[in-house]
Design a protein around this nucleic acid. Sequence first.
DNA 1: CCCGCTTGTGAACGATGATTCTAATTCATG
DNA 2: CATGAATTAGAATCATCGTTCACAAGCGGG
Lengths: 213, 213
Amino acid sequence: MNPRTVRKTRELEGRRGDILASAERLFSKHGYFKTSMTDIAEAAEFAIGTVYQFFKSKEDIYISLIEAKMEEYAKLVEARVSSARTATAKIEAVIRTKLEYFERNRDFFRIYVSEWAGFEWTVKSAFGERCWKRYQEQLDLASDLIRAGMKAGEFRTMEPTEAAYALHGMLNSTIYLWILNAKPTTSLAAKSESLASFFFHGVVPASRRRNSS
Amino acid sequence: MNPRTVRKTRELEGRRGDILASAERLFSKHGYFKTSMTDIAEAAEFAIGTVYQFFKSKEDIYISLIEAKMEEYAKLVEARVSSARTATAKIEAVIRTKLEYFERNRDFFRIYVSEWAGFEWTVKSAFGERCWKRYQEQLDLASDLIRAGMKAGEFRTMEPTEAAYALHGMLNSTIYLWILNAKPTTSLAAKSESLASFFFHGVVPASRRRNSS
DNA sequence: CCCGCTTGTGAACGATGATTCTAATTCATG
DNA sequence: CATGAATTAGAATCATCGTTCACAAGCGGG
């Protein structure tokens, strides 16, 4: 009876995962409000009632989805960052990891970024509490790294929070551009170096450095 | 009769403007889908029917709103940019203008950025055609400036499109941060110089420049 | 003071879509 | 097989909201 139960559980988890996967695709394509429970149920090849067996509401699906992905992403970043030594290397790890992760999770990026922009409906309701915090953690991580880099003399003096926002904004835009153009030929992660170099040195060539404000 | 008609027309324009203003506030606070026509009508102190006298649909309000603001913004940027000489100065103008404009139009920023994030949904349909184009124009303007700067030797060689996206992403993030923190004490436009300098020179101090990739 | 035209009103309509509920089905167990 | 518990199904429910429409009020000219 125990092994049976185990298999049952695994199957249920699987169904739950299927629903989440379908929802991810749909939310990504049409957005939260234009995706109906019927759509999700159909995509997952279940009846509506069944979907409600696994999630108590549409919002619950949405939140579970983001929660899971954010968790996964945060874990990944943390691992990569902690295995780098200098502040510079850690920032490079943040950049590379973000690009790699969203290269593999385009659908999620659309949800992620529209959540970011989504003052929309987000920052309120149960969602904001946990998930907004998680997003904030990413920003804080970057701020801390930049602050550390400043202390170590690797970076010049500046407002770490602002630099962190600028960094993530820049990455988001780049990912966005890449997804829009949707050329499967070029890899997104391949842009890591050029972005890191932009973040570290800007657009002005070294030879000109003294001339500008 | 003519002066009468004129006054009448002005009054109508005024009412139209009132509705747009109310809608802007509401869309900004709750998002497109969570704002109902009833809400808009109430906020503007009209009956629903009256609102439909001025706009043929909810979407029409939304589009008119964005269209008008984008137009205004584009005009402003164009004027400022064309009165600057060097590529560097033109980019500085883009930065300063964007910060100033959104400092004065916070509500619109929320709509603007959630439109940006809404890849194709939010409202889609007629919107995309005109307004997405307008957004794209801003990106193209920046790309062109960067390309010109490269040719003039002011900037180092890089992909202009990517740099343009990075620039705007960085600005969006910064504006976002400023709006969130909502401290009316500090001016957003005041960050222009520091952002420009970040865009031009990055975070690494000049003395260290040779050490990094 | 009245007629007719423009503008304002909000109840009523119709569509959509989240959620619920009960009947059908599956499936382990005796 | 028979039984009953667990699971699936999808029609029915209920609420919301965009839009329309028949009517009322305001107003200018006769």
